[in-house]
Design a protein around this nucleic acid. Structure first.
Length: 208
DNA sequence: TGCCAGGCCCTCTTTAGGGCCTT
């Protein structure tokens, strides 16, 4: 099964924009091989300043917890090795990609891995969902959260299960058994009304 | 006191605007 080799990650951060000085405060990720989670990564990281009450309330991550955590640079060095060479995915990938870029840039590194967005793909695979927030999709699909929502590993695991559910939906609806990473990535970028024709064509090509 | 970004997507669009999402 070439369809499930990737790392799905989630950052908790001090805010929305690394350009305004926001930093990562937690990273969680699941490594997927052959349709199964084979390894996880989770760590808090100290950004070097106190985060707002809003962020502490939103994530449950307190300044006391961050004061005991290793600095961002140490954690990101380890995480860089964890993801090395793997295709990546995240829910709202543009957000996590920006923080990944910003934190790796501080180490003089860059990530070149392909990056898929589970939110953009979910909008096309589950168009009838009430909305496409991760929490809503977790409820809509009956996914069991392993921990608290808005903690990095629990959200990464939820996004991983969402990835599996999307694969299952595509297999069932379009009889498409082989679903490579690239197809999932492309699916998030095509016009919504072109999705059925796109997947039908993919199934036809693979049946040849 | 109250707000901050950014990219995608849809449409009553394209000479634009606003909602969705992420923390």
């Amino acid at each position: 099964m070439e369809n499930c080799n990737l790392v799905i990650l989630d950052f908790e951060t001090s805010g929305l924009s690394p350009a305004l000085g926001d930093r990562a405060i937690e990273i969680g990720a699941v490594k997927i091989r052959n349709g199964q989670v084979i390894e996880t990564f989770q760590s808090l990281m100290d950004p070097g300043f106190k985060v707002s009450h809003f962020i502490q309330d939103y994530t449950g991550i307190t300044n006391q917890m961050l004061a005991k955590a290793p600095p961002c640079e140490v954690v990101m060095e380890q995480f860089s090795k964890f993801i090395s060479g793997q295709p990546l995915a995240a829910h709202k990938a543009s957000f996590d990609s920006r923080f990944l870029d910003a934190e790796l840039n501080r180490l003089g590194r860059a990530h070149t891995e392909r990056f898929a967005c589970t939110m953009l793909t979910a909008r096309r695979v589950f168009p009838a969902a009430p909305d496409h927030k991760l929490g809503t999709l977790v409820d809509y699909l009956g996914i069991n959260l392993s921990g608290h929502a808005h903690r990095a590993l629990a959200d990464a695991e939820a996004a991983g299960e969402l990835w599996f559910r999307m694969l299952a939906e595509i297999r069932t609806t379009f009889r498409l058994q082989s679903i490579p990473f690239d197809l999932m990535q492309r699916l998030g970028r095509i016009p919504k009304n072109a999705v059925p024709a796109f997947l039908a064509e993919q199934a036809k090509q693979r049946a040849r």
